[in-house]
Design a protein around this nucleic acid. Structure first.
Length: 462
RNA sequence: GGCGACAUCGCCAAGUGGUAAGGCAAGGGUCUGCAAAAUCCUCACCCCCGGUUCGAAUCCGGGUGUCGCCUCCA
């Protein structure tokens, strides 16, 4: 398996720290608002990474943190005039609800920053003892000049950044790039007692401490979106090196942005859709197909129109499964012949190449086309259907086949009866009645398909 | 100012040296009582200009355009 590693800027063979195991950490949300659909893209990608590693036979430990103490949460609590704990609680709950609705599997651990304050203080103390941190008026900073390889992840050189233009001047800092490990709290702000006085940890420290605590000093993959490379991941890595001389993660994976009309979607720009709102209009699998049709490192331009067009694509998969009445054959998965196995092998090959989900999706469409092709032998079409569900599931599709394909309940039986009556009318050349049945069914969302093997039906997809 | 990414059919998009996947949309044929569905067929000299090579969308140089990071950000 090959993975593009931001650290080396190239695809590398994946070798886990422990054979057969993958320790994966993806940066999670800061819970000050509903997460937007751009965040959803990144979260969903790592959900697929996790699923694929498991499919490939690895024992995966997947951690995604919840940043529940941060300036933005404090701001939001002032704006909403509710205690900051309530803000964090509310949006944390919303995060779990929305990711579930999106079809993301729960992570193995979802550590909250506020549960790790003690460990963070110990960690900062250690950095201080080792000479990498200094205190100034209740704040504690990391001294980037003390670390030789600072900037290695992002390719930044400490002396070439535009100080003053983009970087906040701060007279307490010895180097403008020095970052906050511990921040003195103002009156009324959430606060914890520390050797440096009342305060709270900096964001970069939260992630290092939680990831190492749950996954070990050096784990396999650390991920997030591209904007986290600098400074967040650079700073995490710096702290880890400084503290114990070990790399934090062997592979760094970063996803591309979701843009709005070519510009980055972000809460600060205000040009965003919350995932919650998008989910009201689109099926989670439509969103999934939309994201997975593109390479994860490329930017995607978001628009409701594009999502609208993607509906047909998802419908394609379910139509195909309807064609072979998948729910009835689901239980007996046949041995795959050469062709069906070929598709599965291709799927593995493209996913092994740095998670090329766009190619993987193309394989899904290839299978759907063959399943619907009545000229293909039925045994093979059945195999293709099982292959479609097998690899589609790895990409996170088909989690609710029963609901999407439900047929053998009472209404299903009634529809079968209507189809039978229509056949009788057709035999008598009573086309007016035959068409009335077809139209009436259509009006309640049931579409009839006359194939040369007889009439089948499907409910119209959202 | 420093660093980086991208530019492929009407739209979305894969492809990193061997002659352009896939999806959406469109047109035509078959099938059908009619329709839908299905199926078959059609639909790209890969932003521009040079260069390297037997051969380049793919490598190199130079343009043009778009975007990102350097501040919080998935």
């Amino acid at each position: 398996m090959k993975i593009y590693n931001t650290q080396t800027r190239q695809k590398e063979d994946f070798t886990p720290v422990e054979p057969g195991k993958v320790k994966l950490y993806a940066c999670g949300p800061t819970v000050y608002n509903y997460f937007h659909i751009g965040n959803a893209r990144t979260f969903m990608f790592f959900d697929v990474v996790r699923r694929y590693f498991e499919y490939a036979g690895y024992d995966v430990t997947f951690v995604q943190n919840i940043t529940d103490i941060d300036d933005k949460i404090i701001q939001q609590s002032i704006a909403e005039n509710v205690p900051f704990e309530k803000v964090a609680e509310h949006y944390t709950k919303a995060f779990f609800e929305d990711t579930k609705k999106l079809g993301l599997r729960p992570t193995d651990h979802a550590p909250k920053a506020t549960e790790y304050i003690g460990k963070m203080i110990g960690f900062i103390r250690d950095l201080e003892k080792k000479g990498f941190a200094y205190e100034a008026d209740g704040d504690v900073y990391f001294s980037v000049d003390k670390l030789d390889n600072y900037g290695s992840l992002s390719g930044k050189k400490t002396d070439e950044q535009m100080v003053g233009a983009r970087i906040q001047e701060n007279k307490q800092k010895r180097n403008p790039l020095d970052f906050t490990l511990w921040k003195k709290s103002k009156p009324g702000e959430p606060t914890w007692n520390s050797p440096w006085g009342e305060g709270r940890p900096g964001w970069h420290t939260e992630c290092v401490v939680m990831s190492r605590d749950l996954l070990g000093d050096t784990f396999d993959i650390h991920g997030g979106a591209i904007d986290l490379v600098f400074p967040h991941h650079e700073n995490e890595q710096a702290q880890a090196y400084a503290q114990n001389g070990k790399p934090l993660s062997n592979y760094w994976m970063h996803g591309g942005f979701l843009n709005m009309s070519g510009e980055k979607m972000s809460k600060s720009l205000g040009n965003f859709f919350t995932t919650r709102d998008v989910l009201k209009k689109f099926d989670p699998e439509v969103i999934r197909l939309f994201f997975l049709s593109k390479h994860y490192r490329s930017p995607i331009d978001y628009s409701p129109e594009l999502l609208e067009e993607t509906k047909s694509g998802v419908a394609n998969f379910y139509d195909a499964l309807d064609f072979v009445d998948f729910l009835k054959i689901e239980g007996n998965k046949p041995q795959f012949g050469e062709k069906a196995q070929g598709f599965v092998d291709s799927f593995k090959a493209v996913m092994d190449d740095d998670f090329n989900t766009a190619k993987a999706v193309a394989i899904l469409f290839d299978l759907a086309r063959l399943i619907k092709n009545l000229d293909e032998p039925i045994e093979e079409r059945v195999q293709y259907a099982h292959a479609l569900v097998e690899i589609g599931s790895v990409l996170g599709f088909f989690s609710n086949l029963d609901e999407k394909l439900r047929k053998d309940d009472l209404s299903g039986k009634l529809i079968e009866m209507m189809i039978e009556y229509r056949q009788l009318f057709k035999k008598e050349k009573n086309y007016a009645m035959a068409d009335k049945i077809r139209n009436d069914l259509n009006e309640i969302g049931i579409e009839l398909l006359d194939t040369k093997d007889g009439t089948i039906w499907k409910s119209k997809r959202k």
